[in-house]
């Protein structure tokens, strides 16, 4: 599992304190962050689409697989460990290996029209809502 950084903001005002906390965290137990879900996902919507965004630094589209089956979105892939000999790690916070996230979508989507883009290590999946799930404006007639 990879570590991710949600919930660990280094707020400027508390910069010093948070920094120390983070160091304790990383130095003390690399086990802890690795049990977290990867990748962290943000999901939002507008009238026409659902959007799922995930940070997957260091990966290309070839390393990722995105599936929509029924009401489930699956993001899976693998981040390869650098295969290099004669290298000594002094700090290793970036995880590697296989991962998969399965998200249950709140509304039906049109699976044929799902699109994914990857830019600067950020994956964005656009899922068009099925017609029946889109908001409709109800006309009011004068009686």
């Amino acid at each position: 599992m990879l570590a991710n950084r949600y919930g660990l903001p280094m707020v400027d005002r508390f910069g010093r304190e948070m920094d120390r906390l983070l160091h304790t965290f990383f130095d003390g137990a690399m086990v802890a962050p690795r049990t977290r879900l990867f990748p962290a996902v943000n999901v939002w919507e507008d009238g026409d689409n659902l959007y799922a965004e995930a940070e997957v630094p260091g990966m290309s589209m070839n390393d990722l697989e995105i599936l929509v089956v029924g009401d489930e979105l699956t993001i899976k892939g693998r981040r390869n460990a650098p295969a290099e000999e004669k290298v000594a790690y002094h700090r290793q916070e970036r995880g590697c290996g296989e991962f998969a996230r399965v998200l249950t979508l709140p509304v039906p989507v049109n699976a044929d029209r799902v699109e994914a883009t990857l830019k600067d290590g950020v994956l964005t999946v656009t899922l068009p809502k099925a017609e029946e799930a889109k908001p409709r404006k109800i006309n009011i007639r004068n009686a």
């Binding site: 950084r5 790690y89 916070e93």
Partner: peptide, 8 residues
């Protein structure tokens, strides 16, 4: 917010 990036 400012975040510490993960580093190797």
């Amino acid at each position: 917010r400012t975040y510490l990036p993960y580093c190797d």
